[in-house]
Design a protein around this nucleic acid. Structure first.
Lengths: 153, 153
DNA sequence: ATTGCTGCAAAGCCTTTGCAGGCGG
DNA sequence: CCGCCTGCAAAGGCTTTGCAGCAAT
């Protein structure tokens, strides 16, 4: 019999857990605990944040939910059929997703070279999203204008 | 004049900052703030943890230090000449390092395909280190023995 | 009837911030 | 001397935990 992290040997299906699972299914992107909590309260006004955290913990242990940490926040989402990776925008903090098929090669290579049994490979990119690149261009233009004015003086 | 995040326009070189930089240089792997704090106290018994955090923040902004987050903890290290990536062991939680040269290709591909200006690419692997694989084998063997005994009964 | 789940409140953990004094340039 | 840095203490933000009552099996 498999023993879970908190010492329990079994899991029970409750309305709250089902609803949290639905919220995860309906979302098209990762959400943090508080986001899920606020949505859940719409149907279960008395649900507590701890229940959300505990449920996510259980779902994670069962492999039904993936947890990602960006900055100091943790986000949750259902495992994707074809796995995606994340790009974090340095400018606005938004997290974007992209696909990458070449990670399988990497996994097998590292397994061989390092004696590590690789379960999961995750690529994280940091950079500037199209919007923030545009903003940067504008502010660079501003500086240029200023410089020209000074030269004209 | 470049304005820093905390509103200051300049940085000063103090004994504490120099020493924190030395601690980072002497380490051969990433350390968290508390680890650096404990080492720093050996020479500066009255240094405070906030100073460590504030210094790391400054060094990070100056690009002299890299920050990585694993689980709920943040780790700091000097930028490597040839960048390495991280493998987190699911069994023991230790973080290992490995090199990977193929990320440059990935960066340029994503830049083109997604319109994202990629500054940094990080690969994170999760799996089991050699030690934990050994432990797993042992515990599987144990179960097998148990099963055999039951069959013999 | 058990065993596990829930809400609530409180505690924990890491990180940040406010402030008054003090040092660096 | 001005501006930046430091230690201390306190606050912050997110997550976990203790507990008593309740619900699922």
């Amino acid at each position: 019999m498999k023993e879970t992290k908190d010492g329990y040997t079994n899991h029970r299906s409750t309305e709250q857990r089902q609803h949290i699972m639905e919220i995860l299914q309906q979302a098209d992107r990762h959400q943090d605990a508080d986001e899920i909590y606020r949505k859940a309260r719409w149907n279960f006004p008395r649900i507590s944040l701890s229940t959300v955290y505990r449920t996510l913990q259980v779902l994670k242990e069962m492999g039904l939910v993936e947890e990602h940490q960006f900055g100091s926040r943790r986000y949750y989402e259902l495992p994707d059929v074809d796995k995606h990776h994340h790009m974090v925008c340095i400018g606005c903090g938004r997290v974007f997703e992209f696909k990458c098929s070449s990670t399988d090669k990497l996994k097998s290579r590292i397994s061989k070279e390092e004696g590590f049994k690789v379960i999961d490979a995750e690529v994280r990119l940091a950079g500037y999203c199209p919007d923030c690149q545009k903003r940067m261009t504008i502010s660079i233009d501003k500086n240029r204008v200023t410089t020209i004015k000074q030269e004209v003086k």
